[in-house]
Nucleic acid binder design. Structure first.
Lengths: 328, 328
DNA sequence: GTGAAAGCGCTAACAC
DNA sequence: GTGTTAGCGCTTTCAC
């Protein structure tokens, strides 16, 4: 910038004005400056700008896994909102590891992102307290923050699971299995709670052998399903705790002679084209991201209100697999 | 940092040493500094650090759409490599709009990212020349750069399409349709070229009504397929130019009485569970991202060699839809 | 082992 | 309209 000023024979501040489109420069001067800029291939260094202005015009997004189809639309929605506010998106995957989440969040704070959208992997976010106090707007998505009071935007896991299981019960099932993610993950626990509530509503007992929580690794899910189906008290239907589990269960069930009903949490592409189509409790992950990002920018734009929690509704989409009658 | 120094009763530089784990500080001093840091909730401001050091330890990734399943694994792979090199990933979607791509790339350069991984939307990247000259390492992925000489990592679109179409021909098809993305997109053009080559290899004519290039919007693809199937010279098989097209074609073909064979470029989740399973030319998008990111860091670590182009092989996965015999 | 001074590239505040 | 000065928070250099 100094070089540009020298070359154009003007002061530093005049260049700054031109670069930032500020008023108060004669067209003629502006032209000279512009020429110098082009000749030197000058581009403003935003790091210095940030240092001076305090705001980075960037927000951080921490999620579990960029490659998971559930997060694609969410991430995209956050990006769109950020873009509309002139901000860039820096993102990182925690790989569902609390330590890595913290490392990532703190790295983003060190970069002085203006705000943070976090899909938490851990359940203790007290490490964020000083940052939030220092002005980093933070919104949690999909799951609430642990041990601190913070904004959160979530889907109705409990209600969704409850209605999904009730749907299976309404179709005559009495022995229903539940395979979900690790119980320390909030949504997994909530969905399990929804399952239990639906069973209890209908006066049905839950055999502990029907419930399996753990990693969503296909091998684990496959083993769990086999144990439930081949055990002493086999189920006639499954409720799958998420996307990944549903897909694996579709594979497992396709290999079996006996038809087992299935309702999964989360919609997924091509669910309608499978045979039978997979009945799901759909959540709108893009809407989740959009709502969170909008909340974030509202905070950044001065909204100093208390923390809010929003719960977005889910929607049952019947496609066949959840309407199969009990068999065997 | 100044505050920390004051509180600990030491010089600024000593704090800096402690924060960066540099040697030359007595354990006792270090402890005092650490206490002050904790008490004040101090975190180093990386913007200032960047300004001084010149490197940001972050790389930019520009892709078409974060929500597209093809880019998830790619993005994830780039992130993993970046992480291994201690860098953060800033990313943005171009939405296949050249202007937006340029805007995004320049914004990233203004942030002084150390390097750039770009899936180009446009076909003229001369705007990047000053940046590259200024030291921003840049690697193009999936498609080559336009009008500049730059590193690129791509899948073998031509060869893959050619082998896919040859596969259909080997199963008795003589009238094969091609539906692909807009021809200005390099991969789309290459795949079309592969299609033509395979037809020519077999001495088969290509009726111009069999070929349709354009947006991958489902409505557009659906209309194009209908026109080809209901036209005067209907095909007995389709080659789909990408992921999105394949999925739409699966839907279209499922609604028809007559079986039409299908081979698609790009694998996708659940392709094996459809009926018939979808035969695809698979490319390894994670490997694409990994290779590109590694090339990038090799450059950043001083590799000053000339530009390289790598072409990764594709793999035909036969699942049924591509092995259907001509019908009608 | 430690600290003072200079300066990275920019913008805010205030002269001219 | 335009230029000058100070300083954002850190690292570098070099003296102690």
């Amino acid at each position: 910038m100094k070089d540009v000023a020298a070359r154009a024979g003007v002061g530093l501040k005049t260049v700054s004005r031109v670069v930032n489109g500020e008023p108060g420069v004669t067209p003629d001067t502006e032209r000279r400056v512009q020429e110098a800029i082009d000749a030197l291939g000058f581009r403003r260094n935003d790091s210095a700008r940030v240092l001076r202005k305090g705001r980075t015009a960037s927000i951080g997004l921490v999620l579990e896994d960029l490659a998971d189809p559930f997060y694609g639309p969410l991430s995209r929605a956050v990006e769109e909102v950020a873009r509309a506010h002139g901000a860039l998106l820096i993102n990182g995957s925690s790989a569902e590891d609390p330590a890595r989440e913290q490392e990532l969040v703190l790295a983003l704070c060190a970069r002085r992102v203006d705000g943070l959208v976090v899909i938490p992997a851990g359940d203790d976010h007290r490490y964020l307290e000083p940052e939030i106090k220092a002005g980093v707007a933070t919104v949690f998505v999909d799951r609430p923050a642990g041990r601190i009071d913070a904004d959160a935007v979530m889907s109705d896991s409990y209600g969704g699971a409850r209605s999904g299981v009730a749907h299976l019960i309404a179709h005559g099932h009495r022995r229903i299995g539940f395979i979900g993610d690790q119980p320390r993950i909030h949504t997994a626990a909530e969905r399990l709670r929804g399952y239990r509530a639906a069973m209890e509503d209908a006066g049905l007992p839950v055999d502990s052998s029907w419930v399996s929580l753990g990693s969503t690794d296909p091998v684990r899910v496959r083993d769990a399903a086999a144990a439930i189906l081949d055990g002493p008290s086999p189920v006639t239907a499954f409720f799958a705790g998420n996307n990944r589990v549903t897909v694996t269960l579709v594979r497992v069930l396709a290999e079996r002679r006996r038809r087992v009903a299935l309702v999964g949490f989360d919609d997924f592409e091509l669910a309608d084209l499978l045979d039978p189509g997979v009945t799901v409790i759909a959540q709108d992950s893009a809407q989740l991201g959009r709502t969170a990002a909008e909340r974030l920018f509202r905070r950044l734009d001065g909204g100093r209100s208390g923390t809010e929690r929003s719960v977005l509704p889910t929607r049952l989409i019947a496609r066949g697999s959840g309407e199969l009658r009990p068999e065997g």
